[in-house]
Design a protein around this nucleic acid. Structure first.
Length: 632
RNA sequence: GGGCUCGUAGCUCAGCAUGGAUAGAGCGGCAGCCUCCUAAGCUGUAGGUCGGGGGUUCAAAUCCCCUCGGGCCCGCCA
């Protein structure tokens, strides 16, 4: 990794100089200066030393600079001092660029081995199986999927799970609709997706019925009870409905390139024995306590670090929802024996087998889906408090010496912009945005957005490629639609509400996924037209233009960027970086000819640059789950 | 009432962890660029009291305190 090597070299140069000067060791930073005019790297060492010794930072910087000796093999070429005391470093371009290009032509550009030997579970999607995915669920899917891709790329052993809440109120509601309120089991029109029919129609109507006639709510209680009995007719019926919805939901997920290893059904988390064991341990470790007075009298409760109480075991001895989560979390980290049975579900579009948990004996020969040292759970931020309790309990449960970690990766919700909310007929009042609600039908389905995007990009692609065949057009149009939606859901910081605006989402220009795809195609086109990649160029002495320099420097940071995004679980960093690279590339592209460059060695070096760029961009696009086409 | 979170250009967002050198992009506006590698592109230009106030510091968008505004969470529901 060239940029890291450069940083390391600079640090060593400074440390050596400090030693020679006899200055004390202090913490200091190697940073990127605000402008490349100052150099490629800079350090605050003089400020830190000055603080400690009560001297002038500029003088100290000068002293350090004078002690730094540079040799032929160094990546750094020049050291300078700037007011009020910065120590700036300039690279030896030829040497550094050669290292960079060499690195990018590797099998895996930007590869870092931070995940070696680490087993990680990523759980995402986890949509109740009674409705189609809306645009908010899709944010979850895309975040989880990109995290999984990042971890995988950095050599983690990753397991992707999708938790299916098959025994909750939401599923019960559609069963009420079918069994008690007379909704037909088949959609009125055959081309309606079953998940959409259940969510958009049955679920919404059933909830309307509840509020119009509260007596009907008793049906839900009946169904919920029946769902606990695997022998009951309602259970078998529900199982069938759930599977039909699930298959449709998973179609949407695979449309946007998200795949899973296993579906874990809530109803299969066997409570009795396993829960008792872990309950005993929680009690032994004093993590939960019996409330003998107060509002939770008779319950076993957990007191969180801020003193708030949460009931774990009700006064009637039954476990609450969070108890099940604790057990499930313990399963993920391999703290309890594996209580699930597994069976094969189907082979996904990416060729990977999808497994699911089962009430039957299942298959003995199945992959191990738990026992991770880190469990990342992508769940929206409204669950933050409960999730924090689970993390706390597990942290205390495993003890300080353990590396096992339960992580809630929270993200803010997706809401609808004024315009988009109005468009689907919602009351907006004077609000800037409106929250979605599944129960009242106030949302936009993921499939709807995808379809609109598809039509748009199909037209655009056809216009640009009038001679192209239908299959290619469809393929590319679909992939552009996916890139647009994925990018728009991932480009923003997880902690910010994503205000979804349909008009905005349908843009294919600017800071979007299609912009990356377009840039890739443009760059690739050069390589294809030229017809060959030059043999290794020994010196890169002709890449002297500003635009080449900026692009190369930015390219050299790929490993650091990937590592940072992975460690900090910030997938938006990848989108941002890829976009920046494309900006730099397009600037270069507009200004400097490659194929038409007359100087042969300059031409060859530019080809190498463009080729390295395509390799880097393709890597980043794969991490984002966006396809790189040779032509769009 | 308790807790969490967001507030940076007309709009959508980076930057804040580790305080530093002129606060960055995209969209939208305006003015331009296709006899030359894909104009889903590029160039130029206008646009910012970094919500407000105070503090710490040689230095604050960044740290601390207060405050205003938006959003969320706080059931022996899941």
């Amino acid at each position: 990794m060239p940029f890291r090597a450069l940083k390391k070299e600079v640090r060593e140069l400074i440390e050596k100089a400090l030693k020679e000067l006899g200055y004390p060791t202090v913490d200091f930073l190697i940073q990127e200066p605000p402008s490349l005019e100052f150099g490629e790297l800079s350090s605050n060492i003089a400020f830190e030393t000055a603080k400690k010794m009560g001297k002038n930072p500029y003088e100290i910087a000068s002293e350090i600079a004078s002690k730094i000796m540079l040799f032929e093999k160094n990546l750094v070429k020049e050291v300078s001092v700037a007011q009020p005391g910065y120590l700036n470093f300039r690279i030896d371009e030829y040497r550094y660029f050669k290292t960079t290009i060499h690195h990018l032509l590797n099998e895996k550009p930007g590869y870092t081995d931070i995940g070696k030997g680490k087993r990680v579970i990523v759980e995402h999607t986890s949509v109740n199986p009674n409705k189609a995915l809306h645009i908010g669920h899709l944010r979850n899917v895309v975040i989880g999927d990109v995290i999984h891709r990042l971890l995988k790329y950095t050599n983690h052993e990753v397991i992707v799970l999708n938790y299916i809440d098959d025994s909750g109120a939401q599923v019960a509601d559609i069963i009420v609709g079918f069994k008690f309120l007379g909704f037909p089991v088949n959609p009125p029109e055959p081309n309606i997706k079953f998940d959409q029919y259940c969510g958009d129609y049955v679920y919404v109507k059933v909830n309307q019925t509840y509020s119009q006639d509260p007596r009907t709510e008793s049906y839900r209680r009946v169904v919920l009870k029946e769902l606990e009995n695997p022998e009951s007719e309602i259970y078998k019926f529900a199982r069938n409905m759930i599977e039909k919805v699930l298959i449709e939901q998973l179609k949407t997920c695979s449309e946007v390139n998200a795949y899973y290893d296993c579906l874990n059904f809530e109803s299969h988390i066997i409570f009795s024995n396993t829960w008792k064991k872990i309950f005993e341990q929680l009690r032994e470790k004093n993590l939960i306590s019996y409330a003998s007075e107060g509002k939770n009298v008779g319950c076993w409760v957990y007191k969180d670090e801020s003193g708030q109480e949460k009931v774990i075991i009700r006064s009637d001895g039954t476990a609450t929802y969070i108890a099940k989560d604790i057990l499930y979390a313990a399963w993920k980290l391999g703290l309890v024996e594996d209580f699930f049975n597994y069976e094969k579900f189907f082979v996904q579009k990416n060729g990977k087998m999808l497994w699911r948990t089962t009430t039957s004996e299942g298959e003995k020969d199945h992959p191990i889906f738990n026992n991770a040292e880190m469990a990342i759970n992508v769940i929206d931020i409204r669950q933050a408090w409960l999730q924090n309790i689970i993390s706390e309990i597990l942290r205390k449960f495993v003890g300080k010496e353990s590396d096992k970690k339960y992580i809630h990766l929270g993200y803010e919700v997706v809401s609808l912009s004024r315009d988009t909310a109005k468009e689907i007929g919602l009351e907006v009042g004077d609000k800037e945005f409106v929250h979605m609600s599944g129960r009242s039908g106030m949302y936009i389905n993921a499939d709807t957005v995808l379809e609109k995007l598809y039509k748009l990009s199909y037209e655009e692609t056809r216009k640009r490629n009038p001679e192209a065949d239908e299959k290619w057009l469809k393929d590319v149009a679909h992939s552009i639609a996916v890139s647009a939606i994925r990018y728009s859901l991932i480009r923003q910081d997880l902690g910010k509400i994503l205000v979804f605006d349909l008009k905005e989402a349908l843009k294919l220009e600017g800071d979007t996924g299609p912009y990356l795809q377009y840039t890739y195609a443009r760059a690739y086109n050069i390589i294809e037209k030229y017809g060959k990649i030059p043999e290794k160029v020994e010196v890169l002495d002709k890449l002297v233009e500003d635009e080449e320099y900026t692009l190369l420097i930015e390219l050299s940071k790929i490993g650091e960027k990937i590592e940072e995004a992975t460690i900090k679980l910030q997938p938006n960093k990848i989108a941002e970086y890829a976009h920046k690279l494309c900006l730099y590339f397009n600037t270069f592209y507009e200004k400097h000819p490659v194929i038409h460059e007359k100087d042969e060695s300059k031409r060859e070096q530019r080809i190498l640059l463009v080729y390295s760029f395509t390799k880097a961009l393709k890597t980043l696009m794969e991490l984002l789950g966006i396809e790189a086409h040779k032509r769009i």
